[in-house]
Design a protein around this nucleic acid. Sequence first.
DNA 1: CTCAGTCATGACCACATGGTAAAATAAGCG
DNA 2: CGCTTATTTTACCATGTGGTCATGACTGAG
Lengths: 217, 217
Amino acid sequence: MPNSSEEIVINKPRRRSRIREAHENSIIRAAEQLFSQNGYHGTALETIAEKAGMSKQNLIYYFSSKEILYQRVLRNILDILIEKMTLMDQLGETPTEILTNYIKSKVEISRHYPDASKVFAIEIINGAPYLKKYLQTHLTPALEDDVKLVEKWMAEGVMDKIDPYHLFFMIWSSTQTYADFSSQVSLSLGKEQLQDKDFDNATEFLTHLVIKGLGMR
Amino acid sequence: MPNSSEEIVINKPRRRSRIREAHENSIIRAAEQLFSQNGYHGTALETIAEKAGMSKQNLIYYFSSKEILYQRVLRNILDILIEKMTLMDQLGETPTEILTNYIKSKVEISRHYPDASKVFAIEIINGAPYLKKYLQTHLTPALEDDVKLVEKWMAEGVMDKIDPYHLFFMIWSSTQTYADFSSQVSLSLGKEQLQDKDFDNATEFLTHLVIKGLGMR
DNA sequence: CTCAGTCATGACCACATGGTAAAATAAGCG
DNA sequence: CGCTTATTTTACCATGTGGTCATGACTGAG
């Protein structure tokens, strides 16, 4: 139980000021967008600062180095991805429902966090220098669990016997493509930008393909 | 009709010397690898030159600017991609055979040109600043033809009625992922590097999924 | 009011890097 | 050999940019 207020307040509570919170957010948003368009080295701190509405020096006040800012951007999207990355976390009773919701979740991420998703993708393409360790400790174990679950389903005869790993690779890639390769996708569809309807169509198609392709239901 | 030989030979034939050919090749190889790992801005000309075994100034002698070199790298992989990009070009009599070979071709590209594929991917992620026009004039029309072919198959009842565009997006993304996201894939599989067997498994899985998922055969 | 800590700006610099200019050397060819 | 063209090297520079330093302005709690 807390003591009387004036007691051992050695470390000042130093609450995150509202200004700091707001500015860090706008910096991260700006950084996501610029990093995703021009890459890490192709983006100048001054450009980010400008987009976030402040001076470069002020930006450095909030993020003491470019690398730290970059890692923060990566970390942000990773938290989102990890959270929805596991089959277990999906609502649904039957395997079909679970898989359906899994696909849906991943398309949603592409729809709502396209810039961050692109930064993540580039990082992976570059060989995941910053993320390798984190992926090993967080993503891989979660994937193992999911694989086991799928194998259980296969043993129970509710789906075809296939290589579960490649199933996940396929779902990851074909859902993320609506963020990462959106320029190619929208170009192919003859649109300036992807609409909600397009994401829905994607979800529907992928669900159909996976469920039927695995002989489920 | 040509006159006697010594007359108007203003433009010398100037055949591509063997040295030039060889050096340009090694430069492009080095550039592919470095661009794919560090991006355009993250790669110094001097680093490329070093990897190609020559001085920076000599590299500039062969490629007069960094941008020109980059476009050449892009152009190279694009030519390969475009060549195999169309369903029409696939061998095979039946729709099933054609689709199977299509998937196989695309996985082969990921297997054999991983670096170039990554450079291409990053370019698309960045919004395809250099490629937009080229994609519009070359890729989109080819895709349209393929879509029409698939629609014909659907009309003939040999496959389920689905959105053909998303089918192609799915095939593109899930085959390219074995090049672009190879670091994540190999990490997930617990390997240092992908083996031939992994590519074969991927092909087999994707083929199964697509053929069965579309109700073909 | 005041004053510590937060926020913001201007001046500046070290350094990497793309690119130029010119001179030197090697290769092909009559 | 002698001459032209192709290749390579040496020296150099202009620019962009990440980051430091010192200083000033603002703000809220006591």
